[in-house]
């Protein structure tokens, strides 16, 4: 009898749990206003923004999906195919993608009242997307293994970095793709070839190569500023160096066509471009797009104005057209022995 009770009790608990499970499946939050942002910004940045934004707009059920730009775009494309769009706002660093989306009529036009304050090497005159952050990439190095930090791009060809340079996979990471394009545009494919001859490797996402550098698996890598800064603040064995020619990559934000949450999307973009929003961005170690926001002193970052001045140049429309070819060429070089 006792055994039987155990069985009964067990099955009741099982049922209850299963009901909970199925309920969980069914129960999507039914907030009035919803917003889903697809972004390549890491948790350390988008998390803080979310918290602030929610404080201001508690009526909006805000959620985000953070992944590399390649993955985001694949997801968007798949959603487009399946006809079930989840994304409302897109915010990542692969600028050419925004031109492409604009061309394909995938974006809603929105000119935020804050847009007039934006300083950026790239702007969309038609207002389909707006840079919301100026990402810079520096050369992150492992402070334990690299005594003298590299100062210029040619320094990376030095024998002491042999087999020690990692670049995030440009097929996966938008920043990496634009960085490669910028370097190619400025120094030519020749430079990439030389890097490879010095044993440069392709890693995965732009975060992972930084971690690999912190752990010493790599000696140097191209690192998005705020990712490196977060780790440096936590005590990682990392340093960040910026050569004279800077990799400055604006991260545009845009509203996806046909979103039912347009109002919420606009509120988010307004917040992002506002002084408060940009202050949060600046505090994580990346450059704001406004010049009226102060940067944390201890990081030694160039100011927004200065960075825009030192930035390498790129014809994004042309780059967009050549994206496949660039990726293929890069792949071929990096796979060569």
């Amino acid at each position: 009898m006792k055994r039987k009770n155990a069985v009964v009790r067990g099955s009741i608990i099982g049922m209850a749990l299963a009901v909970a499970g199925v309920a969980g499946l069914a129960g999507a939050a039914n907030g009035a206003e919803k917003l889903m942002v697809y972004t390549s910004m890491k948790e350390s940045l988008i998390g803080k923004l979310r918290d602030e934004f929610q404080k201001r707009h508690p009526e909006i059920a805000f959620d985000y999906y953070s992944a590399g730009a390649g993955k985001l775009m694949a997801k968007v494309a798949a959603e487009r195919q399946s006809g079930r769009m989840t994304v409302d706002v897109l915010w990542h660093s692969e600028v050419p993608d925004f031109y492409a989306l604009k061309r394909d009529g995938m974006l809603e036009k929105y000119v935020s009242p804050e847009a007039q304050n934006v300083r950026s090497p790239v702007k969309d005159p038609d207002g389909f997307f707006t840079p919301a952050r100026l990402g810079t990439l520096g050369i992150a190095y492992n402070t334990k293994k690299v005594a003298v930090p590299p100062k210029s791009w040619p320094d990376l060809l030095d024998a002491r970095f042999r087999n020690g340079l990692g670049i995030a996979n440009p097929a996966l990471s938008g920043t990496s793709f634009v960085s490669v394009s910028l370097l190619v545009n400025t120094f030519g494919w020749d430079y990439i070839q030389k890097l490879r001859r010095n044993g440069a490797l392709v890693g995965q996402g732009s975060g992972q190569v930084v971690d690999d550098t912190a752990s010493g698996d790599l000696l140097v890598t191209l690192a998005p500023d705020y990712i490196a800064v977060e780790k440096i603040r936590k005590g990682a064995n990392l340093g960040l160096a910026f050569p004279k020619e800077m990799l400055v990559i604006p991260s545009p934000v845009a509203i996806v066509k046909g979103t039912p949450n347009r109002k919420a999307a606009e509120k988010f973009i307004d917040f992002l471009l506002s002084k408060d929003g940009q202050t949060i961005i600046a505090s994580t170690g990346t450059l704001p797009i406004r010049s009226d926001v102060a940067l944390p002193k201890e990081l030694g970052l160039a100011s927004t104005e200065e960075a825009v001045g030192r930035a390498m140049k790129l014809d994004y429309l042309k780059t967009m057209a050549e994206k496949e070819a660039i990726l293929e060429k890069f792949d071929a070089i990096m796979k060569a022995k």
Binding site: L17, A20, G21, V22, G24, E43, D63, S66
Partner: peptide, 22 residues
């Protein structure tokens, strides 16, 4: 604190519970 990981744990939990039961 982190919604992503919290969600992941909860998702896995109810998904495997529901799938196992059904």
């Amino acid at each position: 604190d982190w919604k992503m990981t919290r969600d992941a744990i909860w998702n896995s939990f109810y998904l495997s519970l529901g799938a196992a039961f059904v």
